[in-house]
Write a protein that binds this DNA or RNA. Sequence first.
DNA 1: TATTGTTTCCGTATGGCCTACGGAAATGAG
DNA 2: CTCATTTCCGTAGGCCATACGGAAACAATA
Lengths: 251, 251
Amino acid sequence: MAAERSGGGDPARTLALLWRTPQEPKPVGRKPKVSVDQIVTAAIAVADREGLGAMSMARVAQELAVGTMSLYTHVPGKGELIDLMADTVLQERDLTAEGTWRERVKHYADRTRAVYQAHPWMRDVSMVRPPLGPGLMDGQEFVLAALADSGLEPRQVTVAHVAVEGFVHGAAASEVDDQQLAAVTGESGDSWWGARQVFWDDYFDVERYPAMTALWNAGAYDTEGTLADNMRSSFDYGLDKLLDGIEGGMR
Amino acid sequence: MAAERSGGGDPARTLALLWRTPQEPKPVGRKPKVSVDQIVTAAIAVADREGLGAMSMARVAQELAVGTMSLYTHVPGKGELIDLMADTVLQERDLTAEGTWRERVKHYADRTRAVYQAHPWMRDVSMVRPPLGPGLMDGQEFVLAALADSGLEPRQVTVAHVAVEGFVHGAAASEVDDQQLAAVTGESGDSWWGARQVFWDDYFDVERYPAMTALWNAGAYDTEGTLADNMRSSFDYGLDKLLDGIEGGMR
DNA sequence: TATTGTTTCCGTATGGCCTACGGAAATGAG
DNA sequence: CTCATTTCCGTAGGCCATACGGAAACAATA
């Protein structure tokens, strides 16, 4: 499937939900069987376990022992529900670090990475037209405050911000991609690559790929850790180098 | 939708398709109305125009004036078709640059970025369990060759490779995310943000977000170009800084 | 208690998706 | 003309989001 579209519906309604604009409880009328919070929690639970593809309105309703259409009383549609899910898990980051600007950016990256680890379906949520809720905004503020303390010019802060944000979300996304596929398909990454041993036997052409062959022979791929360990290292390495570059560019 | 899963089917069959293992034309039997190439081309055309979400088997068959089920004679399923589409467009990169290792990595990034621009649905294709076809492999070889020429240790080359690859695909993906959403939903990014003016009016809290407010007041967001221009700048900036960091880490 | 206004619940229906199955149609060889 | 082989594709089953409209629950009022 394609990336999940954030809600394109009425912005005012969506914003009210994201910020949980308190509305005085209705004095009359039938009592609700479910709340927005319950729906969002159930939806996150389903997506955590079975992926965003399995998170259908019918599935969530079933989880809550409620008719499918009842959900539409509380949430405008599936797109908006995904917005609410994303902003909710971003709030789990709990960003309260002290330290140098670099330490704080690193902290932000680690916490964001943890969110993706806990909720791999975040990979499928586009952050280009993001849910403008507290989870997202608090994160933006945190990174921007850190970068502003670095001594960069204001304009440069915003450029660096986009680069950092892109790297963090991008790297976290590819890092959890594998787990997500493992969970959804029931096949582990190791198993998948193992089944493709045929490729190296039947298709890999040593003459066509000399650099890869040389690296292989040099033992560059004889790693100790698991695939997940390697991705983790590259995440840290890449962020470090990116921050090195940003820092170096200031002088 | 969730990220499109690469084909989990029989690896041997998929690899044969990716590398177009030549098979002698059948001497007997009904003549095929369509070829694998035609199917892949039609599928890419549909996805280019209407997004991967619109690329259904029925839609592609319609494009070719053929029954839906006929496609399954030539392609195992939708997942494998997406693999073929992805590897095909990656071949468009045509990587033949000379120059320093940095120039070559930059060239690779630019060409890959161009593929995403031309085929925004690539954003939705997971590259964690990639199609092991010529398009992907030639790209890997190219970057690895460049990085190997940088003077990094073999082990470091592979770590840097994952970081670069992650950055390029991640940044290119978010860069086209906006266009894709514009194409699929029919609403431009500017229009979308405009409709969310309410947020700044009704929800943005100056006291809660001092860093953002300060940057705003300093004119950091008074940019000239379009949203697309800004993302392009950040892509270049981020890659530059990442390569600076990698280069600096060698000494 | 009976009525009325309000709110929530949810069954049905529409139109989409992928693909397993199996028979019909086309083709070349004998 | 027969027949093996290959491709074409209609049908059907089981998913999905959500528009619509009526039924059910509840508080206030008469």
